[in-house]
Amino acid sequence: MTTVTLDQTRLPAHWRDFVALTKPRVMTLVVFTGLCGLLAAPGHLHPVLAFTAILCIALGAGAAASLNQWYEADIDAKMKRTASRPLPAGRMDRQSALHFGVGLSFFSVILMGVATNWLAAAVLAVSILFYVFIYTIWLKPRTAQNIVIGGAAGAFPPVIGWAAVTGDISALPVALFMLIFFWTPPHFWALALFVKTDYAAAGIPMLPVVSGEVATRRQIWFYTAIMAVAAMAPVLLRLTGPLYGTVALLATALFAAMAFQVLRRRETDPARMGPEKRLFKYSVLYLFLLFGAVVADRWLFA
């Protein structure tokens, strides 16, 4: 044992590293979709309780992220993108991350139940358990389709936000769940196309590594088609009005055009993957646009 590692483990982790453990940047999308689910729901929720509900969604996501990093510390150490996270970099011991993650999970679920209702709390609990056990521990190291099922974890926030207001789960939150669910594969695989060398080094079975890039491009296109149906479903089922319909149609057409371009390309050098990177960046904007449109539409027409 060297003195360097001794010092690192003896020194208490910096509080900022606990914040980093919650992946604050990933949280923004979770908070936004959760907030949209809450705002699109019929009925009234006291602003303080609405704030608490969103806080609980954020804390639950942070808890899941912490537990993910507790479990994957060894894998993260092998990837350039994740090697500087608190655990692989040795700035925090694994037990602290575990305790922090478990504590935050219980806190977020109980607070959600007390402040809003226990259906919202139950869905929040399911989403944390799903992310940690189904995605991180079970599917991610085993199958190249990991992200497809695992993406469901990220699809829960609008359902939780909705349930916090209404105490039930109706057709629209389910439609929004499906939209994020089928959006996740093209979003994530676009990223995996240009960071695949990292996943290969860590031995994670990501689609480009296992099935090749051509298959990944085909799968991106395939899931984009299903996502397009999910995106149009709210307006076709008359759950939302013409504003959402127009935004969804235009934004999805652009998404499909970019995914089609990615499908036809055969570039293997990550440095020259402009369209792939563009699709990834646009996919984030796309989700923001559609969820913003759902809220605006519900406020104007519902």
Partner: peptide, 15 residues
């Protein structure tokens, strides 16, 4: 926060 939640729950603030 807990104080504010309590007030909201007993209907003391806003609507």
């Amino acid at each position: 926060l807990f104080y504010a939640i309590t007030i909201a729950k007993i209907g003391g603030g806003g609507q």
